[in-house]
């Protein structure tokens, strides 16, 4: 099992760079470009949620905790320390004319499981992605 934490400020620029850093790190283990792109989208959406909602529009602490079981699965934990939005989380796809509210839906579509929890003052988006043997580097 491999664990690694990545930290940034929750500005739009830094949160995107954080997601790219995680994907770059994962590319040492994962061969499938499509799977890496899916992980990139999920992470970018989860981090953008923190940017938009965690600290009332201001920047605050953002952390990605990566856990990899090589050959099997990837877990991403996207963490913030804001007031929390557990009750407001929506996983449904909004109507076509809606300008927002699709981030968690996209994550739920691309992951095997996804949930939001508040634990010990932390708001955590848990994302679990199973991957087949052929998607990993040998």
């Amino acid at each position: 099992m491999i664990r690694r934490d990545f930290k940034a400020n929750s500005s739009p620029r830094e949160s995107r760079l954080l997601a790219k850093d995680v994907v770059e790190y994962l590319s040492a283990f994962i061969a499938d470009g499509e799977a890496l792109h899916d992980i990139d989208i999920m992470l970018t959406e989860a981090c953008a949620n923190v940017v938009r909602h965690a600290y009332g529009g201001k920047a605050g602490k953002l952390e990605v905790r990566l856990i990899v079981s090589p050959g099997e699965w990837v877990e991403l934990q996207v963490v913030d320390w804001g007031p929390g939005f557990v009750d407001g989380v929506r996983f449904e796809n909004p109507g076509p004319d809606s300008e927002g509210g699709r981030g968690m839906f996209i994550i739920s579509r691309l992951s095997n499981s996804c949930e939001v929890r508040q634990e010990a003052g932390e708001n955590i988006i848990f994302i679990h992605k199973d991957m087949g043997k052929s998607q990993w580097k040998s």
Binding site: H37, D40, I41, T44, E45, A48, P96, D97, S98, E99, G100, R102, G103, I106
Partner: peptide, 16 residues
């Protein structure tokens, strides 16, 4: 080469 839901929101906004 990469678009997230903010990009989708941009397209919807302009379309509307």
């Amino acid at each position: 080469d990469f678009m997230d839901s903010s990009g989708i929101g941009l397209l919807v906004s302009v379309n509307t």
